[in-house]
Each structure stands twice: as structure tokens, then as C-alpha cells.
């Protein structure tokens, strides 16, 4: 077992989360659980991005005060060791987007519940085919 294994299994975890989320969206009866399925898919994609930025045996790509004071030149050693931080920036954006989508979806869930007095998909989307 080493760091590279962590990367592979992390991708597998993300894939499983994606499948669980998709399953929840397609097969779950309860609206709130469908919403959680959407959240899980977003989390799975975030995990893929984070894992692709991960470097086995690397360091966190943040230049602390200590490192800054002791550094000489262009932080060459730091750049070699640090994880790739561009995906992390993308993930931060996606987390915020995911949270706002989730909030809108939950609001809609409440509205639909008030209308139909049920959270069941078959009751709410019954006459909605075609």
C-alpha cells in the first residue's frame, strides 16, 4: 500500500458515489432523497478533481509564514513537492454552485409538499407524462 493506491481508490470512491447519486435520482421515491442524489453527484465530481490534483507524498500547496521566511529564490522545491492546486480552485467554485442548487431544490421541495401534501414522486408527477 502506498500513496498511489490512495489515488486509485479515491477515484473508485468517487465513481461509486456518482453511481449511488444516480441511483438515488432515478429510483428513490422521496423528493428529498432525490435532492441528496444530486448533492452526491456534485461531491463525486469534486472528489475526482481533488484526487487529480493530489500528489502522493506531496505537501499542501500553501506557502506558510515559516516556509516564506526560509525560502530562497523561486520556491523551486516547494513547486516540486506541492499538490497541483488549480483543481482545488475549481472545486471551491463547484461546492458553492452545488450548495445554491441544493438550496433552490429544497425550497421547491417545500413548495411541492405544500401543494400535494406528499413527498412521493409517483403522487406528484403522476399526471405529468408525455
Amino acid at each position: 500500500m502506498n500513496g498511489a493506491d490512495v489515488q486509485v481508490w479515491s477515484f473508485v470512491t468517487a465513481g461509486l458515489m456518482f453511481i449511488v447519486g444516480l441511483y438515488a435520482i432515478v429510483f428513490m421515491e422521496n423528493l428529498i432523497k432525490k435532492v441528496i442524489g444530486v448533492m452526491l453527484i456534485g461531491d463525486a465530481v469534486n472528489l475526482v478533481l481533488i484526487t487529480s490534483g493530489f500528489k502522493p507524498g506531496g505537501i499542501v500547496p500553501i506557502i506558510g509564514e515559516e516556509l516564506y521566511n526560509n525560502a530562497s529564490g523561486l520556491f523551486q522545491g516547494f513547486a516540486d513537492q506541492a499538490a497541483y492546486s488549480l483543481p482545488f480552485a475549481l472545486v471551491l467554485t463547484n461546492i458553492v454552485i452545488g450548495a445554491s442548487t441544493l438550496a433552490v431544490l429544497l425550497g421547491l421541495t417545500i413548495k411541492l409538499y405544500q401543494r400535494y401534501n406528499s413527498l412521493s414522486v409517483t403522487t406528484i408527477f403522476k399526471e405529468d407524462e408525455s
Partner: peptide, 9 residues
């Protein structure tokens, strides 16, 4: 929005 979540993902 639900399908948008899948597509966005």
C-alpha cells in the same frame, strides 16, 4: 434542476 445537476456533474 435535478437533470441539470446530472448534466452539470
Amino acid at each position: 434542476l435535478v437533470f441539470g445537476g446530472i448534466a452539470g456533474g
